[in-house]
């Protein structure tokens, strides 16, 4: 039994807690009425007027004694706050400038990047053009060769045409020859027939005479 610890504060704490809660509820419920509110407002306004009077008198006295008042100090302090605000505004403008510069730099970098890419592309295109030019030259020389060959072919063609003409002429000659030959054959035939006829005629003529 003697070993059991006794905490005398536990109950006290609980009792105090309950008492405090009840007292607060009581006080708040007492003050929870319109009359109390009106009275409080009267007290507040009286206190305010009293303070206003003290302040006004303080200002008057300080003015007579040529002493700065709290209001004067407040005005000076406001100037420093304004200066601080201006510095802040300037700092923000510097930020904006920094951001603009950063943006411009970024744009420039992008532009330079594009320029580099473009010059690379141009170089590649130039190489391609050189290559193409070389090929074109090759093609040109091939074309010239072809042209030459074509002109040779044309010459050959002309020769062939001449030959053809000659051949045509030769064919004409041949025809003529054939005609001549035919005529000759006809002539020969005619000639061969003429003695027979003449003979016949002679015979006919001779027969007449013989009688």
């Amino acid at each position: 039994m003697a070993k059991e610890k006794y905490d005398p504060y536990k109950g006290f704490r609980e009792l105090t807690g309950m008492w405090e809660k009840q007292m607060n509820s009581l006080l708040l419920s007492w003050s929870d009425n319109t009359d109390y509110i009106k009275l409080s407002n009267v007290g507040l306004q009286t206190h305010t007027r009293y303070l206003e009077m003290i302040k006004r008198n303080q200002e008057i006295m300080a003015n007579f004694m040529n002493m700065p008042t709290k209001t004067d100090v407040k005005n000076v302090a406001k100037l420093t706050i304004q200066a601080e605000e201006k510095i802040d505004a300037l700092e923000e403008q510097i930020w904006n400038l920094q951001d603009s510069f950063a943006a411009i730099n970024k744009e420039n970098m992008e532009f330079f990047g594009e320029l580099v890419a473009l010059s690379k592309q141009m170089k590649e295109e130039l190489d391609n053009n050189v290559k193409e030019l070389r090929e074109a030259k090759k093609v040109k020389s091939d074309l010239q060769k072809l042209r030459k060959e074509l002109s040779d072919t044309n010459e050959l063609k002309a020769e062939l045409q001449e030959l053809r003409r000659e051949l045509t002429e030769a064919n004409g000659l041949k025809l003529e020859l054939q005609e001549l030959k035919q005529e000759l054959v006809q002539y020969k035939e005619t000639k061969n027939q003429e003695p027979v006829q003449e003979k016949k005629e002679f015979e006919l003529a001779g027969a007449g005479t013989g009688k």
Partner: peptide, 13 residues
């Protein structure tokens, strides 16, 4: 308390 708020809201205080 209710009346406090009421006093503030209706301009009594």
């Amino acid at each position: 308390p209710e009346k406090w708020l009421e006093g503030l809201q209706n301009g009594t205080v």
